[in-house]
Design a protein around this nucleic acid. Structure first.
Lengths: 122, 122
DNA sequence: ATATGAACATCATGTTCATTG
DNA sequence: CAATGAACATGATGTTCATAT
């Protein structure tokens, strides 16, 4: 089940973080995997974080498996040949629940970092 | 060299975080491994983080290998038989340098979390 | 029994490759 | 050749065991 947190309870892992962003983007429209990857790369690179596409696909898959997302396919217009996999929210309840749970988790992580900054650099 | 950050540049890993706390504690006195483990467990458990002893020992070892810490042994007084391994700062320059570098890293991580909290929960 | 580690197991993630339209 | 994903490789960490006092 919940692999959103390591057993020791240290910081959130990348997978869970990506899932959160994926849900959030897909709530506001339809997206396909590579497009999401590129958007996230772009959005985070100024913080030195560059997510890799296989990890994004794995996150999408988990969200499918959990029944949060569904998908459909579509022929891309501009390119004659190339089929694209679009993602949509399947279960909004679950999506919101996930977001809610992750908020607490993000805040917990923030406290961990804040504590370190205060403890170590007085 | 620097395994203090994953290639993708996501959040800091536990090892680096522990190294920081180990340096910081050992700066202010002598400690042995299990003692440090227990102190950290205790200090972080209210945030759901419970470091495991092998990870602490691995962190200590890395700090030794990097020339930041040195160690000595000592017979424990109260217990007749039991030898303890104490740690001291070997190279204060390096220790401070590590702390300095990690400060930036912690702040970067903080920004990552803060961004998510703002982006996802407006 | 306590402290230290090694050894082993598992998961999280990165890198490289294959397929398919 | 862009998009998807599998397959493989590596790394980070947890669990269990061995050893010495």
């Amino acid at each position: 089940m919940s692999n959103d947190r390591k057993k020791s309870g240290f910081l959130i892992n990348q997978r869970a973080f990506l899932k959160l962003y994926l849900i959030s983007n897909i709530e506001n429209g339809r997206w396909y995997g590579m497009q999401l990857t590129d958007k996230l790369k772009d959005e985070f690179k100024h913080l030195g974080y560059i997510p890799k596409h296989p990890e994004v696909y794995r996150a999408l898959k988990e969200l499918m498996d959990e029944g949060i997302l569904k998908r459909g396919t579509l022929k891309k217009e501009d390119s004659h040949f190339q089929e694209i996999t679009l993602y949509y929210i399947r279960d909004l309840e679950k999506a919101l629940e996930y977001k809610k749970k992750m908020k607490l988790e993000l805040e917990r992580c923030e406290q961990l970092l804040k504590k370190a900054l205060l403890d170590i650099y007085p």
